[in-house]
Amino acid sequence: MEIKNKMDSSFYINNPDNTFVDNVTTAILEKCDDAMTFHSSLPGYKPTPLIHLPNLSQKYNVGNIYVKDESFRFGLNAFKGLGASYAIHQILKKKPQIETFCTATDGNHGRAVAWSANFFNKKAVVFVPKGTTDQRIQAIEKEGAIVEQVDGNYDKTCAYAKAVSEKNGWELVQDTAWENYEEIPAYIMGGYLTLFQEIEDSLLLPSCPRIDLVFLQAGVGSFAGTGIRYYLEKYGANRPKIIIVEPTEADAILASFKKGKITTSLGNSETIMAGLNCGTPSLGAWDLIKNGSDISIKIDDKYSREAIRELYFPNGSDTKIISGESGASGLAGFIAIMKEQEYKPIKETLCINETTNILFISTEGATDIDMFDSIISEK
């Protein structure tokens, strides 16, 4: 069946060429084989659990559903510590004299930078966008950082953090890349490789993946780009099919697919999926996503809520998983595809059936407990 992409559609069906682009990001990622060794040396390191949900699989009539639960990562309740710690480790090898690190964040990345800076006995200053909840701000402050709220969205906050860092001689540790700022975001992506390497022993085989579909949520796209880099490097054209999931009102990746180039989302940036609430894709991630993902989809917040409840109130003997609004968004995208007529072409394109094996990454736990409590009380 031939599917034509429409500019006003909630999804884009890609025809990836499964090749790497010769750029700063891919060059650095090739040299990040030591990320797992570094993380293994940190106090409290252990692989986060990969959870099999057979009853949820049966409910949706698919082969197997697996969820990598990142709420256990370094006591930070999210995966971001992998990227921030590895990047700061690499920076300090070159510039040991640095005293203060700075970043902009929607929450989890800023907490990770604060935690990592504190581990290396350095200071951290973190800027957050307007509307960031008090709980997220307090979580960052508890890691020892100074936090300041900016009257603007994520993109404006990034620009502000960049300007202040340059003025004060601080080192900016941002998880999105732009022209002439690509090395540090690439190191952050390199740190994320540990997550995918941990999956290796229990889920993947040397030459062929035991999974058919991988759902990867995207804000600026660094996490999704890392996953794509991992699967392309290991399996090439035999990689699992990859679905990128974004909020409806922060659909920078989808907008960029439709335009054929990096584009800022025209959404209003109103979404409960705070970790994905970003306006423009990272320069370092876009080429990987464009060349190695199969579907880009945007979803309403209601699917995130449903996914959170699906994991928190497990089916039968399935393990309970506490996943936040952004953490559950991969599963949310799957639920939307399986339920809504609008997404039927995606289901058919991906050939989802009773033998399909699917991987989701729950990138965070309940990082906004008030929001989380209100969602699970809706059941």
Rank of each mutant, 00 (worst) to 15 (best):
S10P: 10
S10Q: 15
F11V: 02
Y12P: 05
Y12S: 11
I13P: 02
I13Y: 07
N14Q: 11
N14R: 12
N15A: 12
N15G: 09
P16F: 07
P16M: 08
D17R: 04
D17A: 11
T19K: 13
F20C: 13
F20N: 06
V21E: 13
D22C: 15
N23S: 13
N23P: 13
V24R: 05
V24C: 05
T25W: 06
T25E: 08
T25D: 09
T26H: 04
T26P: 07
A27F: 11
I28M: 07
L29F: 08
K31I: 12
K31D: 12
D33K: 15
M36C: 14
M36F: 14
M36H: 15
M36D: 14
F38Y: 04
H39C: 06
H39F: 04
S41C: 12
S41M: 12
L42T: 06
G44R: 05
T48H: 01
P49C: 01
P49M: 05
P49W: 02
L50S: 10
H52C: 07
H52L: 12
P54A: 00
L56C: 00
L56H: 01
S57N: 07
Y60S: 03
V62I: 11
V62G: 09
N64I: 03
I65F: 00
Y66V: 01
V67D: 05
K68D: 13
D69I: 04
E70Q: 11
S71F: 12
R73G: 05
F74H: 09
K80W: 10
G81E: 15
L82P: 03
A84P: 01
A84F: 01
S85D: 09
S85I: 07
Y86K: 03
Y86Q: 12
A87V: 11
A87G: 03
I88V: 00
H89K: 14
I91N: 06
I91K: 04
I91E: 02
K94H: 14
K94V: 13
K95Q: 15
K95C: 14
K95W: 04
Q97E: 13
Q97G: 15
I98M: 02
I98F: 09
E99C: 03
E99G: 11
E99P: 07
F101E: 01
F101H: 03
C102G: 01
C102W: 10
T103P: 03
A104D: 02
T105M: 04
G107P: 01
G107F: 06
H109R: 06
H109S: 05
G110R: 01
V113W: 03
V113S: 07
W115K: 14
W115F: 15
S116V: 05
S116Q: 06
A117Y: 13
F119I: 14
F120E: 10
